[in-house]
Design a protein around this nucleic acid. Structure first.
Lengths: 342, 342
DNA sequence: CTGAAAGCGCTAACAA
DNA sequence: TTGTTAGCGCTTTCAG
């Protein structure tokens, strides 16, 4: 008995109430399993009517009356530009879901008007709050007037506005990457840093120095060289690396490492026997499948998304006004060995 | 004059009406720019009141009364598991946005209960329709009873239910990949197909044969070998490829090609001089940055997402009951040359 | 041109 | 234990 003619009017609570011979409030109570004591018989009739009619609650009506929705907005400057940006969504989605929230996603491709309209449309939907995220760690400036209290920055931060933020801990990442090398006994560790100014550049560099200091090793500027942060950059730095006399290299990212692999191979140098290498980012497609598999340090995108909703929901609090820094886990694989005797 | 005490009650249309000295319906008219002729003065007063008070329409109330929302649901089995899955979201998002819709995203990680609850929660939010997408092209079976009319499958299809679907055209992709090789004059083209049964396996294989046939070349079973669809698979197939006497290889995907690169290099064989190679997928991180850069055929994820919402919105129609097949564009790079004289 | 009023589907007192 | 009722914020006839 599910026909009823063509008009596709949705089944409402009233219909259910009618069919079950009770009032809407009774239906509401059994649907929401509120404390109210409803007679077993009535409850049963309602249940039956519900799936007889295929009733489905109207979330919008519910939200309207409760004054709040179960939405969390996620606006990103580039969902797709980078393979792992998706992990931010993923992490945010999982955590949100766990607390009964759904993610409303908007991709603005860095376009200001699109961004403004995305933000405002999210607020119009009475989202619980907004996660504003970027695909690489950087400073951002949000459009004035579109920032309500519940905004948290993910993978970015604002110098001008005291917005809660969660970012990767570049420093400890750089430190751990370097440490992986040092622990194997390397004394001269080169650092192929990016030439592009960024929190990643500074943080990883600082981490590198920290690790050296902790190991009581001198910081030799000749060992750190700036390159374009991609395969090309790594490839073109081979000569300098070899010339530096380093026995190990910390690359600003996995792509640089990939380029370095190619260059080294062309010179007949073997990894890790002749040179140990560690990357950064843990870009799966690259790191896990290079030969030998690349040891690296992972950018915690999933965790970034997760923590983002946690601070949004007030479950976690960044201490002070500093961004919350999420650790970058080391991912040891096969590109590191003890320095060769010489 | 924006204070008003701590109580954070949102500004409603009534507040605006009051402040402007008009009725709510008047406000509604100016806000929505409906046809109604409203006096310039009144209109002006309303405008002013609106930004004086910082009024923002409540989308939920609006949707409630209109009976429909501007949401499109996207439920995916794995937003993140693969680097390019994100492109589906991206394409869907762009197209949806263009038509005034927002994307509601849920990731189910293939978990059935999660999936069911995602679907039902989307319908509860009165989404305009749902895009159900998978990260790799395959057949799916949706939970009974959770499929309303407006569901379209993206990157997957159902054998049991006649749901509109949009999938990549594996066949034409395989054909084009092979053709890139044939056009350079290769006569013996090996095919490293995946050993895993899938539409990709069958479709690309068929495309390979079609291309051969079109070029009046014989199909030699000795030239097609099944491998594990990743680096390992490509690496381990080198001997067989070399033994087959092929001058070119079509790899089931870019990762296989990447493994092949490694193996070939170890044997001192050069690409493309000794062997031309073409991949499939156009996985940026790999294809564009291998040395030499890998010629391949792109999986049209972005387009898949885009078309998905287009058919959902009735802008495009799959013809017949077959899934709509989206072409895979060729991406020529540097891994192909004419066969060496011999 | 503008306003009054009737809901949209649901929740939450408050009665009964 | 169950029903009545008053809205949530907005749109939309229909009168004035």
């Amino acid at each position: 008995m599910k026909s009823e003619g063509g008009a596709h009017r949705a089944v409402t609570m009233r219909d259910v109430a009618q069919a079950a011979g009770v009032s809407v409030s009774t239906v509401s109570h059994v649907v929401n399993d509120t404390g109210a004591r409803i007679g077993a018989d009535a409850r049963e009739r309602v249940r039956r009517a519900i799936d007889e009619l295929g009733y489905r609650p109207n979330a919008m009506a519910k939200n309207l009356v409760k004054g709040s929705s179960r939405f969390i907005g996620l606006v990103a400057d580039a969902i797709a530009s980078t393979p792992f940006a998706g992990q931010i969504i993923h992490g945010a989605q999982d955590e949100a879901w766990q607390h009964g929230y759904v993610l409303l996603v908007a991709n603005t491709e860095g376009n200001a008007p699109a961004e403004a309209s995305a933000l405002s449309m999210m607020w119009e939907h009475k989202v619980r709050g907004i996660l504003y995220s970027t695909w690489y760690h950087r400073a951002v400036d949000l459009p004035e007037g579109l920032v309500e209290p519940d905004t948290v920055l993910v993978n970015c931060y604002s110098d001008r506005r005291p917005l809660p933020a969660v970012v990767p801990n570049e420093r400890s990442g750089g430190r751990d990457a370097t440490r992986m090398l040092l622990e194997q006994g390397h004394q001269r560790v080169a650092f192929l840093n990016t030439s592009t100014p960024s929190p990643a550049r500074d943080g990883r560099h600082e981490g590198y120095r920290q690790a050296l200091r902790a190991a009581k090793l001198p910081y030799d500027p000749a060992l750190v060289v700036d390159v374009q942060p991609d395969q090309e950059g790594g490839y073109s730095a081979v000569d300098r690396v070899v010339a530096s006399g380093a026995s190990a290299v910390f690359c600003h990212n996995d792509r640089v490492a990939m380029g370095l692999y190619d260059g080294l191979r062309e010179r007949g140098l073997r990894i890790p026997d002749d040179l140990s290498v560690v990357g950064f980012d843990n870009q799966e497609v690259i790191a896990a499948h290079l030969r030998p598999a690349l040891s690296t340090v992972a950018l915690p995108h999933y965790e970034l998304g997760r923590r983002g909703v946690r601070v949004l929901l007030g479950l976690d609090k960044p201490k002070g006004s500093e961004p919350m820094a999420v650790d970058c886990p080391s991912v040891p694989r096969s590109s590191i060995s003890r320095p060769s005797e010489r």
